[in-house]
Design a protein around this nucleic acid. Structure first.
Lengths: 355, 355
DNA sequence: CTGTTAGCGCTTTCAA
DNA sequence: TTGAAAGCGCTAACAG
């Protein structure tokens, strides 16, 4: 069928072992032999058989990247960054063989089952590393299952990296400063003078959702506004239409609120749309804020106040960690800082606002 | 090291072959034996060795999806749809083994070299299928190289599916109606009364860019406005800042234009931002239109007139084609229709507009 | 229905 | 510096 190592060996008049050594380049081979082999590889258009190679060497060049929703730029940016670290094997790479890793993005759709399924699939492939991105689902059973899988992966030599979720054993973790960012964001609103602030949260069982909500509540409590914050919190998905619906619900619960904080920028877009459809101006009537600072946020009208997370940097670092090209942070955990981006969608509330 | 088939066989007191048969489920096995094997698998937490299995069976469960830019929702949506077809192996899947394919998304960043590198990587893995999405680069050398790779992949049993680019031999193709959509879009503007229409195109060497521009030009020519269209066309990348810069350039070339058509929605966002920064209102002073109808487009302010491409459906179909679960279209090529979405960002030009 | 027997194509000691 | 040989873990005839 396909061209094999043996074919190349025969043509180059050397043993298969020699061809293997030339191709993997980790063993001295005479220059002349080397050239002969390389020519044979070229002429035969030989391409290594990955499975065979992985079997014999007991390692593979696959790196798995799990994301909750690949259609969401939040994950697209992180995943792209991880992949960009896998070495676009610049010039001079051996034909048919390079040190490249194949970063494969796996879309769990936020489903715990699929997350586990993909982990098993990657374990089956003896992946070199696995990067889990985004918030984790907090069901005890699921957390235990993921932790167990991670341990087994780590035990069999697969590096496990977490990016944007709480640490677990046997994994290097990059956490996001969701709590701190959310707190600073709400403090910004409080400083502007807002007192009735609605909050559109993500799915209740996600760590990202909880952390951001915690930060928001902490700011409120510190300002003595902890009471009844529940009433002005609505949960939904991390998408635009959830933001839209939640806003309508918030307005129903309290039509005198002067600001709405969304758990992410995509939700914030829906919030803005709903507010506008209700005839409310942003930020004159109601201020709006998001989280993540996705590319479109700066372009929204008005430009969206949000919290910037350096997603690309974080993803790239996760990629390097996955390849073992960067030393592990102390304790195996590092936090990615967030930064408040105050823009036009937030302003002081109407003076003399009711309530 | 890890648990192997032989370990399971020993524990279940059967031969390795039997275990293999139970796990792959494609061969009759006595129910009692089956149960015993499954229990052993469970107790040992056995997970198939993918490479070994792929080597022996000469097939793999990898499906590669190549995208130009995974941070762009256009590709995120398509890739997610492809992946969704790969069978989230519902309930009842064998532990440690399922019929699932692992759809892996590979981000080329639009680079021809990386595209080829990924194809080689996937060939090396003996991927079951490869899906190439989005516009292709039109350099003759590169096109030949991709065609050659595709033939080789097809020859070795890898199904090749194209989604959103022109057909090549040995591949099933889903083309997008870029030309027709673009033409209808510009006709819409002409019907509204616009005569001076700027066009912000994508990178010159991409098929998507060319097709959309062709459609635009065709509409112009049919209206007798073919002359000098070049002067009102600016090329850039498929991103927001290119749209911004290009708009400034267009305004410099002709500050009396009454409409700007962007090659995609993301560019259109930049166009809107630039126009606004120049103190121009949309659509009162200048109409704006995009292409793709990404989720955010309906939410833009004003809502963006654009051309809808059923990206999710197209990706899902590409996925089914890749799995051989859907019959090939006649001739191996099918066109995905596009639909004009006329919204608030386009309106008749100011009456008595200069020029 | 189940076991035996060969490999799949590559890597890697161990010798030479 | 190169070759020979022994598997890596699994699947797929082929018997029985």
């Amino acid at each position: 069928m396909a061209v094999t190592l043996a074919d190349v060996a025969a043509r180059a008049r050397v043993s298969a072992a020699t061809v293997s050594r030339v191709l993997s380049g980790n063993y001295p081979v005479a220059e002349s032999t080397r050239a002969r082999v390389l020519r044979a590889v070229d002429e035969l258009e030989y391409v290594v058989n990955g499975p065979a190679s992985a079997l014999a060497a007991a390692t593979s060049d696959l790196v798995g990247v799990l994301v909750n929703d690949i259609a969401d730029p939040f994950f697209g940016i992180i995943a792209g960054a991880v992949q960009s670290e896998m070495g676009a094997p610049a010039a001079g790479a051996e034909p048919g063989r390079g040190g490249e890793k194949l970063a494969v993005i796996c879309n769990t759709g936020g489903s715990p089952e699929r997350e586990l399924t993909y982990l098993t699939l990657l374990q089956r492939q003896r992946a070199a590393a696995v990067v889990l991105t985004g918030g984790a689902v907090e069901h005890p059973d699921h957390m235990a299952a993921v932790a167990a899988k991670a341990s087994r992966l780590a035990a069999s030599g697969t590096r496990v990296v977490l990016c944007g979720r709480p640490p677990i054993e046997d994994a290097v973790t990059l956490t996001f400063d969701n709590r701190g960012g959310a707190r600073r964001l709400t403090e910004h609103l409080l400083t502007l003078g807002h007192r009735r602030i609605g909050y559109v949260a993500g799915p209740a069982e996600r760590t990202t959702t909880r952390d951001r909500l915690d930060g928001h509540r902490a700011a409120l409590s510190a300002a003595g506004l902890g009471e009844g914050a529940d009433r002005l919190t609505v949960h939904g998905l991390y998408d635009r239409s959830s933001g839209y619906d939640a806003t309508l619900e918030l307005l129903r619960r309290d039509d005198s609120l002067t600001a709405v904080v969304a758990a992410n920028d995509t939700i914030a877009l829906g919030v803005c749309a709903a507010l506008r459809d209700q005839g409310l101006r942003i930020p004159e009537d109601v201020s709006v804020a998001g989280f993540d600072d996705l590319p479109f946020s700066a372009d929204a009208v008005p430009a969206l106040t949000t919290v910037r997370l350096p997603l690309h940097e974080a993803g790239a670092r996760a990629g390097r960690l996955a390849l073992g090209r960067e030393p592990q942070p102390p304790g195996g955990v590092a936090m990615v800082r967030s930064e408040l981006m105050a823009r036009a969608s937030t302003a002081p509330p109407r003076t003399g606002a009711p309530g």
